[in-house]
Amino acid sequence: MLAAILSLTILGALLGLALGIASRLLHVETPPVQAELEAMLPGTNCGQCGFPGCSGAAAALAEGSAPPTCCPPGGKALAAAIAEKLGLSLDLSSLTDEGPKLATIAEDLCIGCCRCLKSCPTDAILGAPKQIHNILKEACTGCAACVDHCPTEAVVMQPVPVTLQHWVMPKPLAA
């Protein structure tokens, strides 16, 4: 009986030792996934995903508690990139990419209260107190943070009109 116990413990000890040495030789530190994920997210902390800003969303994604499609402004491309990074399978059905929307200000309603100015994560709104405000189209990400700040509901989300350069040939219906 003793031989059985002894041989196994010695064998285990020897192998354990060998593995300890090997792990020190082959050590490789991997950058935390969360930092990489955060670099991919838009970084506007718009909160549409329900997490406290992009770092919160990145942490949730790293833990796996958030689906890759949790970031609406990112759209399909970002969802695909996150899924590939985490090696998750991806179903794009939930993400109805009906096209980006941009905020537009109805100039006759704007009273120049500057409330929306402060809420915009990318400083896309131009204006001064008591002056009519307007929105820079290139800077607006369509996060709709400004819509509910406006007392006179002058801010409206409108779909981006398709231009000749941005038009995409429709996909044929598969037979």
Binding site: P42, T44, G75, K76, P121, A139
Partner: peptide
Amino acid sequence: AQERARLRAEATRKLAQAR
């Protein structure tokens, strides 16, 4: 279109950082 969206997202990140 996806490439344009990616470039736009990158620009947005720079704007957010600038803010």
